[in-house]
């Protein structure tokens, strides 16, 4: 009996030792910048509708994909975005469009506009191959004007993640967001017919 109790105590102790301490969460802020390319600001107003996303893309927990298993989305234990990715893309779309259009509003101001941008987030994840991790951001966008769809397309960008820290990852995603949103803004402003793809 005494031996059994001793064994149970040992098992309990080893169990406790294995549990260890939980990692503190790291929250990452994304601040994509859209520098104007000197092109004239276009007249007209644009409003961005709430960006939709489903599943792992809709939450603040950082998502990553192993290229060997591209259909499986993993979620990080301790990395989080400051806002859910759909909100980040929403804000990036507003910032990006403000560089080319005179009046741009987001979903917080539900007002009438000449054009409305409706986007669905399709990718917002790290593709984490050893040594060559990349941030991938992609969305599908439709533009509605005068009650009719005037443009649809998929916009996507990859950007390298230069280091192994959370900040390096945030910088990589900033570049990818700038690439994807920048491509959309350029296509809308210039009236390009084909959308870039990853």
């Amino acid at each position: 009996m005494r031996m059994l109790t001793g064994l149970a105590a040992l098992a309990l102790l080893s169990g406790c030792a294995m549990m260890g301490k939980a990692d503190a969460p790291v929250t990452m802020r994304l601040a994509p910048a859209f520098a104007g390319d000197g092109a004239p600001v276009l007249a007209g107003s644009v409003t961005v509708s709430p960006v939709r996303a489903g599943g792992a893309l809709a939450v603040q927990r950082y998502a990553y994909v192993d290229p060997a298993r591209p259909a499986e989305i993993n979620q990080a234990a301790s990395l989080f975005w400051e806002e859910p990715p759909p909100r980040l893309i929403e804000r990036a779309l507003v910032s990006g469009l403000r560089g080319r259009y005179a009046v741009v509003t987001g979903p917080e101001a539900p007002v009438a506009a000449d054009m409305r941008v409706i986007a669905i987030l399709t990718h917002f994840e790290e593709v984490s191959a050893p040594g060559v991790a990349q941030a991938r951001v992609g969305f599908e966008a439709s533009v509605v004007a005068g009650g009719k769809v005037v443009r649809t397309g998929s916009y996507c960008a990859n950007a390298p993640i230069a280091g192994s820290t959370a900040t390096d990852r945030a910088r990589g995603f900033e570049a990818a967001v700038e690439g994807a949103v920048g491509a959309f803004v350029q296509a809308l402003a210039k009236g390009a017919t084909s959308a870039p793809s990853c």
Partner: peptide
């Protein structure tokens, strides 16, 4: 739920 950080994550 059990989560795992991406490979090679360096923590401060």
């Amino acid at each position: 739920q059990k989560y795992a950080d991406p490979p090679g994550l360096e923590r401060g």
